[in-house]
């Protein structure tokens, strides 16, 4: 197992250690370890079918690993469940965005802000004064995030008719409004033009003063420019890890992307 405890930040961020997942006989992840230190951006790349999505689903509790440990801020969370994520300060976006099409853009974002609501069910039903104030605070908070992402003017529209890049921003706003400590981004650049991709890259870099980010992405340009560290998966194993410039030159990575079979190389750990 690669050494993930060596860094000064050990325990403060998100970490996986020796995670393995098999679906029936198919091994999706095999002994994968990685760490996302606070305020850093980790990119997970790899050819199609390398296990990136499974890795993400383990990180957010959709998939329970067969073996291995999950660590978040110094505590073990092997039995991570999706509904507990928000409470733990972890937010994720989905590849298909998962927007609530019948809710307005503002309402979509407000659902994400729910963790900050201190209202109770009864005060909500009875519309107590403190409650209304709280509700307005939620709406304000959601509005501020929309503003930051430049889509405040669409607050009252439903997402259904909006172009894909805008819908992506709504999904991002919904994840950001919870003010997570860890943001999991599932293909943030897919479907975006070069210019939009540069914008999103800048935006992600701008988040690192408040949170760590882990992203899965195909677009090498974005990954190379945005990530502090990169983990490369192939056939469910980590075949390389390190800084973007190191990974770019790695023969195992080049081979994997060219389709050659390369044995896993634990000694290559450089992070």
């Amino acid at each position: 197992m690669p050494d993930i405890d060596g860094a000064d930040t050990a325990g403060a961020g998100f970490a996986m250690a020796g995670v393995s997942v098999a679906f029936g006989g198919l091994v999706a992840l095999s002994d994968v370890s990685l760490e996302v230190p606070p305020n850093r951006v980790l990119g997970v790349i790899g050819p199609n079918g390398a296990g990136k999505t499974t890795l993400f689903n383990v990180a957010c509790g959709f998939v329970r690993p067969d073996a291995g440990e999950l660590w978040w801020r110094g505590e073990r969370h092997d039995r991570l469940r999706p509904h507990r994520l928000a409470g733990l300060g972890i937010a994720r976006t989905l590849q298909d965005l998962g927007l609530f099409e019948h809710l307005t853009v503002l309402e979509n974002v407000m659902v994400g802000a729910g963790r900050h609501a201190r209202t109770t069910f009864w005060s909500s039903l009875l519309a107590l004064p403190g409650h209304t104030r709280e509700e307005r605070a939620l709406a304000d908070r959601a509005g501020a995030v929309l503003d930051r992402l430049g889509i405040a003017d669409l607050a009252d529209r439903t997402p259904a008719g909006l172009p894909y890049p805008v819908r992506k921003r709504v999904a991002l706003a919904r994840a950001l409004v919870a003010e997570p400590r860890l943001l999991l981004l599932d293909e943030p650049a897919s479907g975006l033009s070069g210019e939009e991709m540069a914008e999103i890259g800048e935006l992600i870099r701008g988040l690192t003063d408040r949170m760590s980010v882990m992203l899965v992405e195909h677009h090498m340009d974005l990954v190379m420019s945005v990530c502090d560290d990169i983990v490369v998966l192939d056939f469910g194993r980590v075949i390389a890890r390190g800084r973007p410039e190191e990974v770019r030159e790695d023969p195992a990575v080049l081979a994997a992307y060219l389709g050659e079979d390369v044995p896993a190389e634990p000694g290559r750990s450089t992070c």
Partner: peptide, 24 residues
């Protein structure tokens, strides 16, 4: 107009996503 109502609508529309956003 209430947070609970919003969460109920979100849950009705997509349970998995709502759960991910911390809705019970």
């Amino acid at each position: 107009y209430t947070d609970v109502g919003l969460k109920m609508r979100a849950s009705a529309f997509n349970q998995e996503v709502a759960r991910l956003l911390g809705v019970r």
